[in-house]
């Protein structure tokens, strides 16, 4: 299905605006006026953007790159964040994330990837944990830092 990008992005934003407007009606009297105005304006202007896409700016989104490169990277980061919050420690998830991101970035060769990943992980550990003394999430697995 091919749709002009402004049409469906306008539709999504209109949806968000309408949802925020509806949600805001449940706030108390003095807290709702401002978000209702902002949400209403967002819905109206997004809807006009969607409508205008019929008369001008029929560009399609070039989604191939984002889907093939950015989306997997987002997934990798989400997996890392989940592992960190779950308590798998810092070093192992970070090393795996770096390996995945380096591969997605186009670096090839197992040894090169591993070397870069170890280097980056160690540098980040040095900067944040040793240097800035940031407390890391507690690890559930004994022995994993």
């Amino acid at each position: 299905m091919k749709l002009p990008s402004d049409l469906w992005i306008g539709a999504v934003l209109t949806g968000i605006g309408v949802w925020a407007l509806w949600e805001a009606t449940g706030f108390d009297d003095r807290s709702r006026t401002y978000p209702m105005i902002v949400a209403g304006l967002l819905a109206v202007s997004s809807a006009s953007m969607a409508c205008l896409s019929f008369v001008r700016n029929q560009e399609q989104l070039a989604l191939a790159g984002p889907l093939r490169a950015a989306l997997p990277a987002g997934g990798v980061i989400a997996a890392w964040a989940a592992a960190l919050s779950f308590g798998l420690g810092f070093l192992l998830p970070t090393l795996l994330m770096q390996i995945a991101l380096l591969w997605l970035g186009g670096i090839r060769g197992a040894i090169r990837i591993l070397a870069y990943a170890v280097l980056i992980t160690a540098a980040a550990y040095g900067l944040f944990v040793v240097g800035l003394e940031v407390p890391l999430p507690r690890s559930r697995v004994p022995g994993l830092m």
């Binding site: 990277a73 994330m97 770096q98 970035g105 870069y116 980056i120």
Partner: peptide, 11 residues
């Protein structure tokens, strides 16, 4: 290399 910077910036 630019490719390696991706991971560095993310982290």
């Amino acid at each position: 290399p630019k490719e390696a910077l991706v991971g560095v910036i993310a982290l």
